[in-house]
C-alpha cells in the first residue's frame, strides 16, 4: 500500500468553477451591458466612462486591479471547467489532452492577466 494517499485535485477546479459561476451570475449581465453595449452605443453612461485616463487609474488602483483579475481569471476558470465537462456530451473524449487544453488555457490567461496588471503598475 502506498504510504501517502493520493488526493483528488477535483475540489480545486470545482471551487474555481463555483467562484467564477457565482461572480458571473451576480455581475456578468451588467458587465456585458456596460462594456459591450452601453459604452460602445453611447447609452445611459457618460461617454468618457471608459476613457484611457479613467481605465488606467482603475487598473492602477489596488481594488481595481483585484476586481479586473478576479473577473477575467474566474470567468475563464468557470468556463474552462464547464466546457471540459461538456466535451463528453458532444462526443469528444474528455481525456488528459482535453484537460490540459481547458485548464491550461485558463491558467495561461490567468498568468497573462496577472502579468499585464503588474506591468500597468501602481
Amino acid at each position: 500500500m502506498k504510504k501517502t494517499l493520493k488526493r483528488s485535485n477535483a475540489p480545486i477546479f470545482w471551487a474555481l468553477f463555483g467562484a467564477g459561476g457565482m461572480l458571473s451570475a451576480l455581475l456578468g449581465p451588467m458587465l456585458v451591458f456596460i462594456t459591450g453595449l452601453a459604452i460602445p452605443l453611447g447609452m445611459l453612461l457618460p461617454v468618457d466612462t471608459m476613457s484611457y485616463a479613467k481605465m488606467l487609474a482603475f487598473a492602477q488602483n489596488i481594488v481595481g486591479k483585484g476586481f479586473i483579475f478576479a473577473i477575467i481569471s474566474l470567468f475563464l476558470w468557470h468556463a474552462a471547467h464547464r466546457i471540459f465537462h461538456s466535451l463528453h456530451d458532444i462526443g469528444i473524449h474528455a481525456g488528459i489532452v482535453a484537460k490540459l487544453i481547458c485548464y491550461g488555457g485558463a491558467l495561461a490567461a490567468t498568468l497573462v492577466t496577472a502579468y499585464t496588471l503588474l506591468a500597468i503598475g501602481f
Binding site: G20, S24, G28, L31, V32, T35, G36, Y52, M55, L56, A59, I68, I71, I72, F75, L76, H78, A79, A80, R82, I83, H85, S86, D89, A109, V112, T113, T116, L117, A119, I120
Partner: peptide, 28 residues
C-alpha cells in the same frame, strides 16, 4: 452549459482590452 462559451469569449475580450490598456492611450 453552452453559456460558458459566451462567458469565456467575454472574458477574453476583456483580457484583450487589458493588454491594449497596458500599451498606452492610442492602443486603448
Amino acid at each position: 452549459e453552452g453559456t460558458a462559451l459566451f462567458v469565456a469569449a467575454y472574458a477574453l475580450i476583456l483580457l484583450t482590452g487589458l493588454v491594449y490598456l497596458s500599451r498606452g492611450e492610442a492602443a486603448w
